[in-house]
Design a protein around this nucleic acid. Structure first.
Lengths: 214, 214
DNA sequence: AATCACGCTAATCATCCGATCAGCTATCTG
DNA sequence: CAGATAGCTGATCGGATGATTAGCGTGATT
């Protein structure tokens, strides 16, 4: 089905597996320790390989970072696209609520996403430019279209979409981004399914109106 | 009035001024570039001094970081205490709304606060422990008492206070934390007074109920 | 006036970082 | 079977980082 089946493969299968182990380790460490705080040696150690291998598969530390982040956004894009696909024909308000819920669920299972965004987008720089132009903007524009429709329908108050965007992307993921703090501060584990469910309910209740709280 | 007037001072006045210049530079760079990303040479350069001076005033990089963060939290504590003082006698709901507004205004004028929190509290570590135990917990407990009263009064929906805390601290400051992203992504400058006002209005509207939107 | 502590700097240290290079080994190709 | 190549490692390099040390100048003390 894919091109790699037709063309005789030049890369050995073992390389793909280690590549993905490296990418997973890089994503975790970059998101938790920041780009500068995560060292290539530590990433390599977590992936069970030696440090020069990172420069073999990804020529530079920046390219490793880009590859790890691109994989994460690909997951987000796929999850949202699949969900949207499954919501064809559902009425606008219900579809919007379920799409927002899906986004918060993703933020809970992939806290690395907003950890990296809040890490890189605090300052101007090449990584922020790349993140915004290549990955964040498409999702922002999709969200903006959705919010615009909901405001027109009177479901959301008449607030500029940029504010709605930062209220949702702030209120939804922050508890999961700061999971270690939340555990120490409140004793609650944000990775628990019950807590995730309660948070999704709470955020959607505040966003779409109080009476919606079950 | 202060003790330094009575006791003959041993530190020269010039030292206090440079100390504060160093602290301000450290706060900006730590919050934007993370603890590891900010170098002592860069902090010194921004403060207009040489790098070994940082080790003279603050024995280590960690102590410099602690001093800078402590000063920021002292400002927050003072601002909120002053505001609460001025709200004695005001009815509970109005006082709560104005206190929340004050918090968001502070997040707008001091984005370094939540930049550092989201930087350090993603991972367990000594800096996270110190931040939570010495500075975050007192404010969390104050917020928890406020939220508990508002839930009892029926002003807020019956959601555990931890969720309310992370919804507020996520929805309020994120737009200002990610100001560079917001400018590039939306063309809106979150430091503009009009935008700050609109965001404060929007967040309080979602938090305290739709009908409150002016 | 002599002394001394304070504020600050130039020079330097050990350490760690990302990157490079030569070389090993196993698999694939012809 | 022989050669080539992909996958990976050990050793190492230049550069940057946080910290230390010795020492300078100025202003307060006695």
């Amino acid at each position: 089905m894919t091109a790699t089946d037709a063309v005789p493969r030049v890369t050995r299968p073992s390389a793909d597996a280690t590549r993905e182990r490296v990418l997973a380790a890089a994503l975790d460490l970059f998101s938790e320790l920041s780009f500068d705080g995560a060292t290539t040696r530590e990433i390599a150690a977590r992936a069970g390989v030696t440090q020069p291998l990172l420069n073999y598969h990804f020529s530079t530390k920046d390219e490793l970072w880009q590859a790890a982040v691109a994989g994460l956004f690909a997951e987000l894009t796929e999850v949202l696209a699949t969900r949207e696909e499954g919501l064809r024909g559902v009425d606008q308000l219900t579809a919007a609520k379920l799409l927002v819920r899906e986004f918060i669920y993703f933020s809970a299972s992939h806290p690395q996403l907003h950890r990296i965004i809040t890490q890189e987008c605090k300052t101007d720089g090449p990584r922020m430019d790349w993140l915004v132009d290549c990955h964040i903007r498409p999702h922002y524009e999709q969200a903006a279209r959705l919010f615009t429709r909901l405001v027109s329908a009177g479901v959301l108050p008449d607030v500029p979409v940029a504010h709605l965007y930062y209220i949702l992307t702030g209120a939804g993921p922050t508890m999961f981004v700061l999971a270690p703090e939340c555990r120490r501060l409140t004793g609650i584990d944000p990775q628990s399914p019950d807590v995730i469910e309660a948070h999704v309910d709470a955020v959607t209740a505040f966003l779409f109106g109080r009476q919606e709280l079950s």
